[in-house]
Amino acid sequence: MKKDVEILIRDHIVHVKFGNEFATMIRQPDSNGLRKINFSIPLRGAYADVIEGSGIASVDNINYEECSITFRSLPFYETHLIAELITDILKKHETSNS
Score class of each variant (00 low, 15 high):
G33W: 05
F18N: 02
N97Q: 15
K2A: 14
I56G: 02
T24H: 07
I69C: 02
F18W: 09
Y77I: 00
S96T: 14
G55Q: 08
F18P: 01
K3T: 13
F71I: 07
I37A: 03
L85S: 01
I37P: 02
R10C: 09
A48C: 11
A57P: 07
Y77N: 00
H15I: 06
L34N: 14
I56P: 03
I9P: 02
T79N: 05
R27W: 06
K92W: 05
A83H: 00
F22E: 15
D60W: 12
T95C: 04
I82P: 00
S54F: 02
A48K: 07
T70M: 08
N32L: 13
T95R: 11
I62P: 00
G45R: 15
D49S: 11
S98M: 13
G33R: 05
Y47R: 02
I7D: 00
G19L: 13
V16A: 00
Y64L: 11
F71E: 01
M25H: 06
I37G: 02
K92L: 15
D30E: 10
I56E: 03
I9G: 03
E21H: 09
G45S: 12
Y64R: 04
D4T: 15
H93D: 09
S73P: 10
T24Y: 05
F76L: 10
S40D: 09
M1E: 14
E65V: 12
E66M: 10
N97K: 12
G53H: 08
A23N: 05
I41L: 07
C67P: 03
H12C: 06
E21G: 04
A23E: 02
S68A: 12
R44K: 15
P75W: 11
I56A: 03
T79P: 03
E94M: 07
Y77D: 02
K36M: 12
F18R: 00
T24N: 07
I86Y: 06
V16S: 01
E21P: 01
S58Y: 14
H12T: 15
V50R: 05
L81K: 12
T24R: 09
L74G: 07
H15Y: 12
R27G: 04
L34Q: 13
F18T: 01
E65C: 03
V5A: 09
I86C: 07
N32V: 04
D49G: 04
D11P: 08
I26Y: 10
E78H: 09
S68H: 03
